[in-house]
Design a protein around this nucleic acid. Sequence first.
DNA 1: CCTGAACCTGACGTGGATGTCAGATTCTAC
DNA 2: GTAGAATCTGACATCCACGTCAGGTTCAGG
Lengths: 119, 119
Amino acid sequence: MRIGELADRTGVSVRSLRYYEEQALLVPTRTSGGHRDYPEMAVDRVIRIQELFAAGLHSKKIAQILPCMRDVDGGPSEQADEQLVAELTTERDRIDRMIGDLVRSRAVLADVIDTAAGD
Amino acid sequence: MRIGELADRTGVSVRSLRYYEEQALLVPTRTSGGHRDYPEMAVDRVIRIQELFAAGLHSKKIAQILPCMRDVDGGPSEQADEQLVAELTTERDRIDRMIGDLVRSRAVLADVIDTAAGD
DNA sequence: CCTGAACCTGACGTGGATGTCAGATTCTAC
DNA sequence: GTAGAATCTGACATCCACGTCAGGTTCAGG
């Protein structure tokens, strides 16, 4: 599919999709005229990439993770080496703390909203 | 307490604490010589601020939220107006989606780690 | 063909929290 | 009072995903 359609279907901007290619996160094939051509599975991949960005990961690390993901269409993948596993463990722990922060912030907002409404 | 001690006790940099003052998130009193002087409750407040930053809120909105928080030492507070409640509701929903993203990303990382370790 | 929509590359701009450095002043302990 | 640590102000630097604009090319329908 073309880049515009992928953008529409994922809610991600065309600019961002070009950025993903630049960062080697999602490299499409090209039509004879040079236009980007994405496969169906790109939709899922874009969503995963967005989730990983939301979790505070940088594009370089995402590029390392993607080939190690299991649920990737088209079979298994690479194996994370020792170095990467160590880094991902650190990231995972950071995400755990971050989830805690979000849950507490969520509660704060809900409380402010409720206090204004019910009171 | 002095800014350095507050930084040590919260894990937040001195630079950030000065930024919080600039943004009216946490305004300390001053010693006769002009040094910042923070009360005990500043420790909790800094932690709350960090959590709200982690949740993707900007300093301007945090500045609006802080006076409306219930758990603030020193009694109740202001009431969020209709406009603010609407904005906070949007933010709350965004945080809910973000938590979902983080949980899924966390699972992806854990899976990559496990796959590399156990396989 | 021909036109308008969609896409291309390349480059520069942006926002926001924070790092960092310089030069001056204040605090603390002796 | 004096040295050295801590703090002060002000300004500029940084990171990084993404916005945006310019000028040109490709694509799809009539």
